[in-house]
């Protein structure tokens, strides 16, 4: 019964001992042991950078450059963190980044759900052509937009404002596409029934479609919040006032100023990473299942 679970496990080669419950059990142990060993080694490689970041961030300057490397600091200190808050204006960076990410994500998801619904559930002339024209912008690299959008931003007087960070990214193609896919799982009868009961179109969208799209919605909210939080190039180009920096740009600038104070830099990196990581671990079940759910298929 468990045989099919061993796909791609090189250690499970002997098919002779297929019969017998005890050999079955041994095969299971041996097969999965190999898997766990390899995945465990890989997992260590994945987390070492994070562990080393946290470890360094609690070390006084002299200890960061001592040999041999130590996982646990001899005299742990939080002075690096205090330094970051004092000198990098961390509170401000957190507030700016949160504010912009929340607003952008709300716009991204709302507009995408609306368009996904319209392109997925309505029949009107020109629907497909409009959809594919919008979708085609997906392939255009952001570098193509960088210069013209910057000049346009300066032209309308939005340089160095949050407006410039938010407005050009209100609509987004990826989430729209995902919502349109998701609409095929919602029965059209439901919408028709609501119409017959006299529900208005906006009421149907807000009270039926959005609640029914919860699964796709949560995943896309999480991903867009992460992407918006981690956005770098556009804020780097558009914002020059330090008080309006977002966290990525703030960290990059900070690293440039304190390039040889490794403890302080790692404290800064920790502070940039930890909020988003904590948020994600809290909702991770949704996300990992949601990638599958929203239909990422070749």
């Amino acid at each position: 019964m468990a045989n099919q679970d061993f796909v791609g496990v090189p250690s499970q080669i002997d098919t002779q001992s297929l019969s017998g419950a005890s050999s079955e059990f041994q095969r299971l142990r041996r097969g999965l042991l190999f898997n766990y060993l390899v995945l465990g080694a890989g997992a260590i490689l994945m987390v070492v950078p994070f562990i080393w970041m946290i470890s360094t961030s609690f070390k006084p300057q002299a200890e960061t450059v001592s040999f041999p490397p130590r996982l646990f600091p001899i005299s742990p200190t939080i002075s690096n963190y205090i330094d970051v808050f004092d000198r990098a204006n961390m509170g401000r960076l957190y507030w700016n980044t949160t504010f912009i990410s929340v607003i952008k994500t709300v716009f991204n998801i709302y507009t995408s759900a609306l368009l996904g619904y319209i392109f997925g559930k309505f029949v009107f002339r020109g629907r497909d052509i409009i959809f594919y024209i919008l979708l085609s912008t997906w392939i255009i690299p952001f570098e193509v937009y960088l210069i013209p959008l910057y000049l346009m931003t300066v032209q309308v007087g939005w340089a160095d404002t949050f407006t410039a960070l938010i407005v050009p990214e209100i609509f987004t193609v990826y989430a729209m596409f995902m919502f349109r896919q998701f609409m095929y799982t919602i029965p059209t009868e439901l919408i028709d029934a609501a119409r017959i009961d006299g529900a208005g179109e906006w009421y149907i969208f807000h009270r039926i479609i959005i609640p029914l799209s919860r699964a796709a919605l949560f995943t896309l909210v999480a991903f867009y919040f992460m992407w918006n939080w981690n956005d770098f190039l556009w804020p780097l180009v558009v914002i020059s006032d330090h008080d309006k920096y977002v966290i990525t740009v703030g960290l990059a600038t900070f690293v440039g100023e304190f390039w040889n104070q490794y403890g302080v830099i790692m404290a800064g990196a920790s502070l940039a990473i930890i909020p988003i990581l904590a948020l994600f671990i809290a909702v991770q079940r949704f996300i990992i299942e949601g990638v599958v759910l929203t239909g990422l298929k070749g």
Binding site: A43, M46, T248, L251, M266, A269, A272, I273, I276
Partner: peptide
């Protein structure tokens, strides 16, 4: 395995 995906590249590059 997903941890670095969530981390901003700026922060991971710093590490």
């Amino acid at each position: 395995y997903f941890l670095p995906v969530m981390t901003s590249v700026i922060a991971s590059a710093t590490i």
